[in-house]
Design a protein around this nucleic acid. Sequence first.
DNA 1: GACTCCAAACCTGTATGCAGCTTAAGGATT
DNA 2: AATCCTTAAGCTGCATACAGGTTTGGAGTC
Lengths: 228, 228
Amino acid sequence: MTLSQKSTAPDIKTTAETIQTEILQRICFLDYPPGTQLKEAELAAEFGVSRTPIRDAIGRISHLGLVETRNGVGTVVVALSAAQIRHVYDMRLELAPMIGTMSPRGITETDCEIGQTLLQDAKVLCSAFDSRKYIEINHRLHVLITSLIGNGTLRSFWWQTYCQAASTWYLVSSQRDLEMARALVAELGEINTALELGDVTAIGFIQRTHIGYGYQRIKTHLLSREGE
Amino acid sequence: MTLSQKSTAPDIKTTAETIQTEILQRICFLDYPPGTQLKEAELAAEFGVSRTPIRDAIGRISHLGLVETRNGVGTVVVALSAAQIRHVYDMRLELAPMIGTMSPRGITETDCEIGQTLLQDAKVLCSAFDSRKYIEINHRLHVLITSLIGNGTLRSFWWQTYCQAASTWYLVSSQRDLEMARALVAELGEINTALELGDVTAIGFIQRTHIGYGYQRIKTHLLSREGE
DNA sequence: GACTCCAAACCTGTATGCAGCTTAAGGATT
DNA sequence: AATCCTTAAGCTGCATACAGGTTTGGAGTC
């Protein structure tokens, strides 16, 4: 085959792509909470580039629905509506079990080590909660799980829904800190068991279970009185 | 709620977004078969704009994996690898049944009329096959079905996988013309029945069934000897 | 004749300038 | 004092110019 010859240049990301990842992460991490206005000129100054790559980056993530750009006004980070949150979570509930069934890659020694490290870090949160650290641990966990997915399409979708759900979910986490920390430790405990047994299917179902829990928390603390 | 006030400007698409849709359609319709080089300057001249909106449009569809841009070389339409095709089809097989289960919108009179029109047009193909018309009918069918999906996330994913699968699938259709035309008529017949009964769930399963058939054809005629 | 090396052509990536749109503030009028 | 209108500031959308990278073809050499 002529394509996929990435031997010479493995992953030389262009400036715009790097910025794209950074901006998306900032939205997910609530560094840019909903309502934040992303000014191209401002970001350009921060990254030391012109407006062009900034525009590229924002344009590339626009399909996730997390930002809205209007001419003459600006680009603002939008909070997903209650209906959209429901849609994303309903989808994640369906996708989770597929993680283990759609040609996953094998679990390596490294995966187990990462899992253990995450559990250690999560335990610390139970005694001294830190919203930022909670977000980072969760993010690393999702990087790990996503990497287990062998089906590229599912991997892409799984990551897309994670990004869409993240900011809302992290918003709740700041309200129910201890509860969330304990839930994370429990989840990581189960995941480590599955990792050691090499059972990716189990990981899928564990995810499905805990997404359900998270969904319930969001419904309780955020969507309780909102309408359609 | 403060957002979603599209009353004043319903859908004023920017130039780049219009071009984005057009380019993506050309890729799906095989107007740009795999290997085609998309030169920004050339497209800019055709659409009567500068390179900037063209770049925007291409950048926005890059996440589908249908194009690959390399600095100094150009942007080329890529054929999905055998593994990627498998991934996309495996995913579509899973997504199809969800069409009817994840909060679909109701079926209207208009939907039934569109379905009937499509069936009429498809029947013509059985006596006089025309690859282009086959593609267009299929496209209109997918627009219809996608519009039935109430869950926005699923709708987005369903459309993404359609775009990814389309060009490969249409490539096969040009080889097995009569077989494909008859299959389309059969599919549309079933779909019209489901439409008249107002049963979106049935439509999901009909899709699932016929995607399976299409997958088999692709495996037989395209992936038979290719490796991983 | 075959091979090497260099240069020109061509493409994308980025910077910058301008036009159009939106908003908000301030002054004039009622 | 309230309201309307004008004007200026700020942002995005687009056009254009330049820089960096890649390929290709031909001249020169062995």
